[in-house]
Design a protein around this nucleic acid. Sequence first.
DNA 1: CCTTGAATCTGCAGCCACTGCAGATTTTAG
DNA 2: CTAAAATCTGCAGTGGCTGCAGATTCAAGG
Lengths: 156, 156
Amino acid sequence: MASFTNSRAGDDRIGSLAESTGCPVETIRYYERVGLVPPPLRTQGGHRVYGPEHRDRLAFILRGRELGFSLDEIRELIGLTEQGDRACVTVEAIARSHIGSIRTRIARLTRMLEALERLARDCRRGRSPSCPILETLSAAQDGVEPRPKRPTRRAN
Amino acid sequence: MASFTNSRAGDDRIGSLAESTGCPVETIRYYERVGLVPPPLRTQGGHRVYGPEHRDRLAFILRGRELGFSLDEIRELIGLTEQGDRACVTVEAIARSHIGSIRTRIARLTRMLEALERLARDCRRGRSPSCPILETLSAAQDGVEPRPKRPTRRAN
DNA sequence: CCTTGAATCTGCAGCCACTGCAGATTTTAG
DNA sequence: CTAAAATCTGCAGTGGCTGCAGATTCAAGG
């Protein structure tokens, strides 16, 4: 039940903000530390008191995370919201580049998945004399093709 | 050209091992530090000298990583190879659980991708008065459903 | 033999996005 | 007023590397 307190209505302690947004308390504090959520007011004892603006900001961050944006990308998006809305082009650029990286990750995972499923199927059939998975991992094939000077790094 | 040295043939310094396997030098040392690659012999000056057994072990690890196994899983798989091959069932269990987690990750990424593509499409069409991506992120929907006591954590 | 430059050594800090803990303090319910 | 719950700060740890500084060693050329 909403009881009356001496704070304004809609103000939250960190616990209730956490509960209602689904974001852990520690993470909220972390977002404040890294400058994504502005520092809220405090009680005399030092407890944080959040207003609607904080709640909105946190929600923004969480939705961004759900879409897979990094905290840096989210920071950038926040910046754009704050400086007028003609930045749609920039936003789209960020989104498109993010889409690209998601596609890459999916492709990579799909390759892994296919390889593993093949191996697991062979396991099940018992076609191999010993374990085909270990065989594959131990197989003395030629090494991977040598790495280029600038090592190609890929996100897993 | 293979020139003769006073080391046994097939022995490698860390640099040539790195080049031929495609695994960065620092990563090889890291694998040694965490106990995945056994400590090699050393020259009098302290430089590492690798034999074929190290090369094989490293290759095993790299193939495992290509299949997306964690270093802990790889450690476990190494343990299994070392204690006879009747462990195929265990191997399959590890692989299957890994397959599950890959499927989950793909599903999650696919959801993100679809949502983002929809938004980016709207951007392009210019259907919205302001930027639909920022709109979505800022939208004052109801909060996420409250988190359960034991917070559901998901790998991104 | 000596010099030079490349390779390697150790140790430690940083990356991302949190997560968890200890120990102190504040708030709230009864 | 007390006891329990919530919150505070600060710091360390996660995984899997990656990068740097500064010292040392190695291999080739003169």
